[in-house]
Computed example of a mutant assay.
Amino acid sequence: MLGKVIQLIKRSDLVVEVLDAREPSLTRSKKIEDIIVKNYKNILLVLNKGDLVPLWVLKAWKDYFKTEENIESVYVSATSHLGTKILRDTMKSLLKGNKGIVVFVGYPKSGKSSVINALKGRHSAQTSAHPLEYGYTKSIQLFKIDNKIYAWDTPGVIPPDGNELEKTIRGYNADLLEDPVKPALMLINRVIEFSKESLISVYKVDFNNPYELLERIAIRRGWFYKSTKEPNIDMAARAVIRDYHEGKIAYYTLPPSLYRDDKSNSI
């Protein structure tokens, strides 16, 4: 899968890396960004799911990327079609007004498909198929965003990597986890660090620790182990991870330049 992503990068003029606006740092792929740099490609960061994060936080991340790393970024909410015109205009600017091909990359659940669908709109149209190189026989389609911008119709999916928390945030499928409780507890701790209230708002229960939250979710939803009749925390853990991926848990993290500020701000 990663090899296919690299092929698309090499055959494109601009790489758009789609991030989760709640966790911009943890949803960036340094490995992919190194490949982008080595192939002398422009990069644009897109903070998707921007509706889950306060505007001032989105602006702070945009300023951070530009000031500290000299990387252009935009923030959008693809499902609400907010920010797509700015995204389109920024891509044009980075292509310097020339025709070009764009590839969208990112971890699963970052919303790459939603961003692509939002850009397609009524102006897009499929063009000819192009076979991938190096032994790949399946063709993929280019679609036309406007008169000068084309994009691959299949986003470049980066396999989730890192530790258990990072893999979870980067979109690892909850249903494939043999033991979902540990990563779910790590994720809950991560959210609590910034906004416990967001979890209380979603699950309508108060709690003293992450394990208790899983128990109360299971009890509230009637999930119990058949053998012991204890709350089924495995089902609760998978539900929390899925809810996170689906954007039901709203919170935010701050760029390093602001990290020393009070990070306990609630939304």
Score class of each variant (00 low, 15 high):
Met1Asp: 14
Val5Ser: 14
Gln7Gly: 07
Gln7Tyr: 11
Gln7Ser: 14
Ser12Ile: 05
Asp13Ser: 12
Val18Phe: 09
Leu19Ile: 10
Glu23Gln: 11
Pro24Gly: 06
Arg28Leu: 12
Lys31Asn: 08
Glu33Arg: 13
Ile35Val: 15
Tyr40Ser: 15
Lys41Ile: 01
Asn42Gln: 10
Leu47Ile: 03
Lys49Ala: 04
Gly50Leu: 02
Asp51Lys: 03
Pro54Asn: 07
Leu55Arg: 06
Leu55Met: 04
Trp56Ser: 14
Trp61Pro: 02
Asp63Val: 01
Tyr75Phe: 12
Tyr75Ser: 08
Ser77Gln: 06
Leu82Gln: 15
Gly83Cys: 09
Ile86Asn: 15
Ile86Lys: 15
Met91Gly: 10
Ser93Phe: 15
Leu94Phe: 12
Gly97Ile: 04
Val102Thr: 14
Gly106Ile: 02
Tyr107Lys: 10
Pro108Gly: 07
Lys109Arg: 14
Lys112Gln: 12
Ser113Arg: 11
Ser113Cys: 12
Ser114His: 06
Ser124Ala: 15
Ser124Val: 01
Thr127Cys: 03
Ser128Met: 02
Ala129His: 03
Ala129Pro: 01
Ala129Gly: 13
Glu133Pro: 13
Gly135Glu: 09
Gly135Lys: 07
Thr137His: 09
Ser139Trp: 01
Ile145Pro: 13
Asp146Gly: 13
Asn147Val: 00
Lys148Val: 13
Asp153Ser: 14
Thr154Glu: 04
Thr154Arg: 08
Gly156Lys: 04
Pro159Ile: 01
Pro160Met: 10
Asp161Val: 07
Gly162Val: 04
Glu166Pro: 03
Thr168Arg: 12
Ile169Val: 13
Arg170Met: 01
Arg170Pro: 12
Arg170Phe: 00
Gly171Val: 06
Gly171Glu: 07
Asn173Gln: 12
Asn173Trp: 08
Ala174Trp: 06
Leu176Cys: 01
Leu177Arg: 02
Glu178Phe: 01
Asp179Asn: 15
Asp179Phe: 06
Lys182Asp: 08
Lys182Arg: 13
Pro183Glu: 01
Ala184Val: 00
Leu185Trp: 08
Met186Leu: 15
Met186Val: 02
Asn189Glu: 14
Arg190Tyr: 15
Arg190Met: 12
Val191His: 05
Leu199Gln: 01
Ser201Cys: 03
Val202Thr: 09
Asn209Arg: 02
Ala218Lys: 03
Arg220Tyr: 05
Arg221Phe: 12
Phe224Thr: 03
Lys229Gly: 00
Lys229Ala: 02
Pro231Gly: 01
Pro231Met: 01
Ile233Gln: 05
Asp234Lys: 13
Asp234Ile: 08
Ala236Gly: 01
Ala236Leu: 07
Ala237Pro: 08
Arg238Pro: 13
Arg238Trp: 11
Ala239Lys: 11
Ala239Gly: 02
Ile241Ala: 11
Glu246Tyr: 14
Leu254Asn: 10
Pro255Ile: 03
Pro256Met: 11
Tyr259Gly: 07
Tyr259Ser: 14
Asp261Arg: 06
Asp262Thr: 00
Lys263Arg: 14
Ser266Cys: 07
Ser266Asp: 15
Ser266Lys: 15
Ile267Thr: 09
